[in-house]
Design a protein around this nucleic acid. Structure first.
Ligand SMILES: [Mn+2]
Ligand SMILES: [Mn+2]
Ligand SMILES: [Zn+2]
Ligand SMILES: [Zn+2]
Lengths: 154, 154
DNA sequence: ATTTTAAATGAGAAGAATTCTCAATTGGGA
DNA sequence: TCCCAATTGAGAATTCTTCTCATTTAAAAT
């Protein structure tokens, strides 16, 4: 991750925000999980450590951390966003069958970002990169992918 | 786009779905726009041509078209999804200041997908690739990007 | 340590996006 | 043409997120 607990909270203070216990705990929860979490999931964990925490504060803090570049969120095709600390490899493979989310890094992306700067004058500050498809496990199960291509039931 | 009107509707029929006027019109609206549209925006245009169309049908049809691989959706940081026909270049630059969405293609991505197949055994069927940052216009305006880094107002 | 004050919070209402329910309609095969 | 499962429209219901506002609190100033 781009910032440990101290670094992250320091950034909060330096930006002129108060260092409240709620913000502390939310940051800790984000740090102690290796998975993406929805706001609801984060809030549930926050309340384990700080029972009177309110959901709105979790949303407000996640927004704030995002503005500060400490947190990013992705949309894995579900109805809600998923949050995680910024800075680690941020490319996702989302299996359409089992729902598994595999993270991967690639040095291709660094090249792409340089190209974007050169060709489009665009400065990248964050990215949301998801490849949807079928993971190796699900492919091995022998079920034809085409069988799933249309699971629509009206 | 991957499929013209005829091809797309043909695929619908071939998959065993009825070819209703609502579906026709929704497909036409998608085809006649070069921009990403929210479900609400799409529905508004659909009603211009077919006033008694219901919003739920627009949602249902967009889901169906997505299952069939005819439509994709992206999440541009707003609260709602944006839809467009599948098949054209699908990489997006989203300006955090002016909100502009620039589309771009890159042959890097083909390579990445091949690498994913080789290294992870993952078969890509769709992708959602967004780079967030600041477009050339907004950068030229001379406003320091850092000034915006935290627009949070409590 | 006490005072002060704007920032932050909790609770629940409100809002927005999406899905569901179900009675009525309809596309398209027989 | 007849039939019926598929589809639809309307609005209720759900889910996710933001807003409102009275109360609390971090932390700067005394
Ligand atoms: Mn990640
Ligand atoms: Mn696009
Ligand atoms: Zn899988
Ligand atoms: Zn811009």
């Amino acid at each position: 991750m781009i910032s440990g607990l101290k670094t992250g909270l320091k950034k909060l203070k330096e930006a002129g925000f108060k260092l409240t216990p709620q913000r502390r705990v939310i940051f800790e929860v984000l740090e102690s999980s290796d998975k993406h979490m929805s706001a609801e999931e984060i809030h549930k964990r926050v309340k384990e450590r700080y029972p009177r925490a309110g959901l709105a504060t979790t949303y407000r803090t996640l927004d704030l951390l995002k503005e500060l570049g400490l947190v990013t969120n992705i949309n894995l095709g579900e109805e809600h966003k998923h949050y995680e600390l910024a800075g680690k490899c941020h490319y996702h493979l989302v299996c359409l069958r089992c729902g598994d989310v595999i993270e991967f890094g690639s040095n291709f992306f660094g090249k792409i970002e340089k190209g974007l700067s050169k060709d489009h004058g665009f400065e990248v500050t964050d990215q949301n990169v998801e490849f949807h498809g079928y993971c190796s496990k699900c492919r091995q199960k022998g079920e034809k992918i085409d069988d799933l291509a249309c699971g629509y039931e009206g």
